[in-house]
Amino acid sequence: MIDTSFHAFTEDLRQRLQRPLPGEAAHRKMASSNRYRMGIKPNERTRRSAVLICFYPYQQSVYLPLILRPQYDGVHAGQMAFPGGRMERFDENLVRTALREAQEEVGIRVSDVKVLGLLTELYIPPSNFFVQPVVGVLPYCPDFYPDPHEVEAVIEVDLETLLDETIVGDSQIEVRGVMVDAPFYQIQGHRVWGATAMMISELLMVMDT
């Protein structure tokens, strides 16, 4: 049986996601210094992708998983992220993309996920992707089975940690040989910055309005 407090959280979040989203106002709070200065726009080669922000109950609290990407020859190597990836031709929509990718990357049973709504689609210039954050819930704490080719580690984060304003910091980060000022969330020894931090910022703003 679902914990009644988790059920209340789920219903409240579902309702909040139906309201107008804060979008760029939330994104700018955690955007790196070069994001808007460079003025890079989507183009005809921009691809679509989606990630799953999936809450679940555990020990009288609410959790969600982040993943640590392994080191590889790519723009997002070694970064913290939500499970997700590119839309394939056989995906009927971006919600399906988010669910499929979460199942492939960390073993979430997608048939058990209840989708609550969407956050604002976000353009990621380094990889030239539009990414759609999909918010869902599981009624239980899942066992994770990370794909070692895609995921170095699964980091389970409780909601209280995300709501703690002291985890927000700012520092210089090297991006493709250029040093940029980047806000971040310090979570379990990892710095969560870039698009993932911008999504978290919007999620927190939605929960606070």
Rank of each mutant, 00 (worst) to 15 (best):
D170L: 09
D170C: 08
D170V: 04
D170P: 00
S171T: 11
S171A: 06
S171E: 12
Q172G: 02
Q172Y: 05
I173L: 06
I173H: 07
I173F: 10
I173G: 01
E174D: 07
E174P: 01
E174G: 09
E174W: 02
V175R: 07
V175A: 07
V175S: 04
R176T: 09
R176Y: 12
R176H: 14
R176F: 15
G177H: 08
G177M: 09
G177F: 02
G177V: 13
V178E: 13
V178W: 04
V178R: 08
V178T: 11
V178D: 08
M179F: 11
M179E: 07
M179S: 09
V180F: 00
V180R: 02
V180I: 14
V180Q: 05
D181K: 04
A182D: 08
P183L: 02
P183Q: 02
F184Y: 15
F184T: 01
F184V: 05
Y185N: 00
Q186S: 15
Q186D: 13
Q186N: 09
I187Q: 02
Q188A: 14
Q188F: 15
G189K: 12
G189M: 07
H190G: 05
R191M: 14
V192Q: 04
V192A: 05
V192N: 02
G194L: 09
G194I: 12
A195T: 11
A195P: 01
A195I: 02
A197M: 06
A197I: 07
M198Q: 12
M199S: 11
M199P: 07
S201F: 02
L203Q: 11
L203A: 15
L203K: 05
L203S: 13
L204W: 11
L204H: 09
L204F: 13
L204G: 13
L204I: 11
M205K: 13
